[in-house]
Design a protein around this nucleic acid. Structure first.
Lengths: 203, 203
DNA sequence: ACAAAAGTAGACGGATCTGTTTACTTTATC
DNA sequence: GATAAAGTAAACAGATCCGTCTACTTTTGT
């Protein structure tokens, strides 16, 4: 995330009116993209709901894709900021930190604006040539999960076992998201935490 | 699926030229929707690539949404037709049949046109009012997974345990899809099969 | 063989979307 | 307080997309 980019965490506590134009745009875009997806939301809608003129919009962003990129960057940054904050309170080493992911997920799924994962969406949305840069943001997000999980696994298991445990844990995480979204059931995170415990039981 | 609707399995073996107009449309739409998603593909593209006139298109389908609906119905029908065929060869009762899902998944992920799950996409694509009917098709698909899995679990465990095991198994399945798509790794299905074995180990 | 059905080709209207531009107003800075 | 920066409002071009329609040709059934 660039230095001049506000992050969404700050924006969440402010009212739209109190924000500067650029942050109003970001906050509105975040809400709309989150609810309806980046494809079905147009620039005009973002402009109207953020009470900003079109000229101002294009003064801060050179294109729609750039807003989407900023949206993804913010999501990525915020998700891991919150995850790290959550995990930092956990005592018990690498294993406990991995298991804490699922408590974090349950919390996330319980937010009233939870609507699936923007990056899982992105796997499907950003397949065309003109959105390759956005697809890179998606890949980055999954790499961040890789860094988070593998750095903990390294303290627990041998390198060969990471090749098994990492895809398994990532499946449990992403599967939780889909099931929570599809069945509307946040508790699935705790059910999958039990599985994570069992596959890490010897460590 | 309605009686006059051809299924995609039949269409796969035929060349485009040998097919009747309606089937050419379906086959082309299937390929394009699968690769680029239903939102980024327009009617004109489908018409051009299926070598059909616009009039003919609208003679068989009253709207774009109707083609998407037919596409989803075909996918749903074909997926469970193949899954049931796969499972029917398995000896070993309900548990073995559940585990066979993951072999089926690996096979699916290894297809060269694998590009994630149309219904996981649909969870995100079909949120607007005018595509409620399409969202219903998505819900139906997940209900079919529920029927498939729960009917087997009933033979193995008590009803309360189904409430735990079903979301867990569905997470492993959907998580496999996302990870296979995101990391491009079909082998994740086998890794998750091990987990499924362990959570069903006492049955 | 001939009429009806089904097909092709493609123009067209109306809507929508992105991004540019013009004309004017407010805000901020020195 | 004057000037420059930043904002509003909205028209506009160009592209795309869905669905309708006209005009013509091919196929099919009896």
């Amino acid at each position: 995330m660039t230095a001049e980019t506000s992050n969404l965490k700050d924006l969440r506590t402010d009212t739209i009116e109190s924000l500067k134009p650029r942050d109003r745009i970001l906050k509105t875009a975040n809400a709309l993209f989150n609810e309806y997806g980046v494809n079905t939301i147009g620039i005009d809608r973002i402009i109207a709901e953020s009470s900003v003129s079109k000229r101002t919009f294009y003064n801060y962003f050179t294109s729609k894709n750039e807003v989407i990129a900023a949206y993804l960057e913010s999501k990525d940054w915020l998700r891991f900021a919150e995850l790290n904050k959550h995990v930092s309170r956990v005592k018990g080493g690498a294993k406990a930190e991995i298991l804490a992911i699922f408590d974090f997920l349950e919390q996330w799924f319980s937010e009233d604006d939870f609507n699936g994962c923007a990056f899982a969406r992105g796997l499907n949305d950003f397949t065309q040539e003109d959105v390759k840069e956005l697809r890179k943001k998606v890949d980055l997000y999954f790499e961040h999960w890789g860094e988070f999980i593998k750095s903990r696994l390294k303290a627990l298991v041998k390198p060969e076992e990471i090749k098994v445990l990492f895809p398994q844990l990532l499946s449990l995480i992403t599967g939780s998201v889909i099931v929570a979204q599809g069945l509307g059931d946040a508790k699935v995170a705790q059910l999958n935490k039990r599985i994570a415990e069992s596959i890490l039981t010897d460590y």
